[in-house]
Write a protein that binds this DNA or RNA. Structure first.
Lengths: 168, 168
DNA sequence: TTGCTCCTCACGTCACGTGAGGTGGC
DNA sequence: TTGCTCCTCACGTCACGTGAGGTGGC
């Protein structure tokens, strides 16, 4: 996936090839994966790897193919799996990676949502604060700003005792 | 995961035993798992299964042990894994299950959070609505409820305006 | 020509399952 | 006694890796 540099088999410099492009013939791929060429043919027969083919029917292994081969090599040599096990493990690894990706997405979405709701609540709080100026009551029916300017007064007049809107 | 039905080997009824309690001797466990008793001993030697032991050193397999054995049986016979592969797969399955559990928890928490924030915002909206009653102005310095009850009056008095006495 | 490719077949090795053989306690 | 348990050792089978052997095209 990442743009990687790479070189022609011998050693010419700095030419970038895609990970999935078939570039190595079997002897090279085998050497890179530290395997016998015949082993690579066997793996292909079992469906563990599927290299491209040239017009002349020569197998062409990509960088990704070689990495897969190396992973298989690790599983068989170091961990002692047989090929059925390799198949299962590679498949499960894929599923696991996928789940991890899903989980990252889920987390991402959660924090995003949290951010948005926090912002929304903040906006609401702000508008609330702008509307509501603190007042206090001097005596029943007369309130003044809480900041102390008692010259500004608000009187509430009611018909008798009938209560309509908000009080205090 | 859930405490499930469970009965004694032959068929006596409804006796629930714990999943992890050692109850089957090797011949019974082998038959339940459709394996050779010697195979069970071999698996134990390789660390694939660890039955309890009686005071007399006799192996005692639990229901969970038998299920594990059956899973191993499936992996080896049907899928052709060797024991190293079985080990890897069982381990990965555990990790996968754990991730799934984590994911469920994450989702749960996300919806919970959403619910709470929705509720909070709703509360804020409600209080905003309760505080702010629509009023309209009859003339400068005198406002009444917008719903038309003009008997309720609110007079605003400011210092320079020189309006002092409010008539009750 | 050499050195690669393609293929198929065969053999050696090793893991695994299981049987045999001997012990001991209900 | 039988029938289970425990153990170790050994053998048959099969999967896998790899070598051999024969072909064909740069």
């Amino acid at each position: 996936m990442s743009a990687k540099r790479d070189r022609d088999p011998p050693g010419s410099d700095g030419v970038r090839i895609e990970q999935t492009r078939g570039v190595f013939m079997i002897s090279v791929a085998a050497e890179l994966a530290e395997m016998h060429p015949q082993t690579l043919r066997m793996y292909e027969a079992r469906g563990l790897i599927t290299p491209k083919r040239s017009a002349k029917n020569t197998r062409l292994y990509s960088q990704a193919d070689v990495e897969r081969l190396r992973k298989i090599q690790r599983l068989t040599s170091e961990e002692g799996l047989n090929l059925a096990g390799v198949e299962s493990v590679l498949e499960m690894e894929e599923r696991l990676d996928q789940m991890q990706r899903e989980m990252a997405k889920l987390r991402e979405r959660a924090t995003q949502m949290e951010r948005e709701m926090m912002a929304e609540m903040d906006r609401m709080r702000r508008s609330l604060r702008a509307e509501i100026v603190p007042y206090r009551s001097l005596r029943p029916g007369e309130i003044v700003p809480a900041d102390g300017d008692e010259r500004v007064k608000i009187r509430v007049e009611r018909p008798q005792r009938g209560r309509r809107g908000a009080d205090a």
